[in-house]
Design a protein around this nucleic acid. Sequence first.
DNA 1: CACTCAACTTTCAAAATGCAACCAGCTACG
DNA 2: CGTAGCTGGTTGCATTTTGAAAGTTGAGTG
Lengths: 163, 163
Amino acid sequence: MPYRPFIDQNCSIAAALSLVGERWTLLIMRDVLLGRRRFADIKRSTGVASNILADRLEMLVEHGLLQRRLYSEHPESYEYVATRKGLDLNPVIIALMQWGDQYSAPQAGPPRIPVHTVCGHDAHPQMHCSHCGEVIASGELNVRPGPGASQKQIYEGVLPKRS
Amino acid sequence: MPYRPFIDQNCSIAAALSLVGERWTLLIMRDVLLGRRRFADIKRSTGVASNILADRLEMLVEHGLLQRRLYSEHPESYEYVATRKGLDLNPVIIALMQWGDQYSAPQAGPPRIPVHTVCGHDAHPQMHCSHCGEVIASGELNVRPGPGASQKQIYEGVLPKRS
DNA sequence: CACTCAACTTTCAAAATGCAACCAGCTACG
DNA sequence: CGTAGCTGGTTGCATTTTGAAAGTTGAGTG
């Protein structure tokens, strides 16, 4: 039985996860976004087996998250660079990193600190509400059905938030 | 050969993914955070097989992202509620949703719109820099080694951002 | 008494993963 | 000149994990 696909859930989270939800994919994207772009580098840093890495990279190129570029001839070597679509995964990766920092950081502190290249300072990115501008804390976010919602989703509406 | 663990990478992203990086785990967390908290509901909505769902829920409870609570006796039924640690995955889920909205939304528009419960309006959450307060756009974020960085990570420093 | 529900558990074939070995083109070293 | 090493993979095979369906347990329903 092939892996069960996440289609037909009419859910953007499921759609996103059907591209990057596999065990290794986000780890590979982390590497590329951090600047490790060559096959051997990614293999070393993630520890993924080469056949799996080859499969995932091909899949990421196919879906337009990465682009394969000749990096040097003699010796022939390639690099995988993030497209806009791949770059736009940054918020996901950063959010994961912050969660990891919070709950699994080494005693010494976080291994990496994000820097805002525009202002040049440590960024500690946080989600803000586009309406009131305030920081959004855990549990302060709900959802309502959007224009693309299915009848069932509209019926379910905003599911109850029991404590 | 068991699935290769993501340990010893000294990376918070890898640490996070070793808990929630499996194919179904974030989808299950989505359900719980959206208010679907019972076994049968999650099974129906995600389409996951029941043995897998049982495994994942047990693992999430073990690692403190969920708590199993008796929801009603007669008939005996349970619900899985997010702990603080689970709730703090919200930024990850929202970031995935926004990425999915951007690149895989149905023609009609996004299926769900996030609402900021504090101000009561649509939230469209965005990452802001804690230093300058500006919105952080794609590619405007870099990293530097933090206090917990390994020697190798310090040596690598901020990897080159080739275009 | 048959039937349903809820939350699982068990069974077992089909896929996916992981390891190791190999390949082909090039280069660097002695 | 021979050999070893790097790069970016491919191939083969054993082990694990997944998925589908069926079974379980305990209680409630008509």
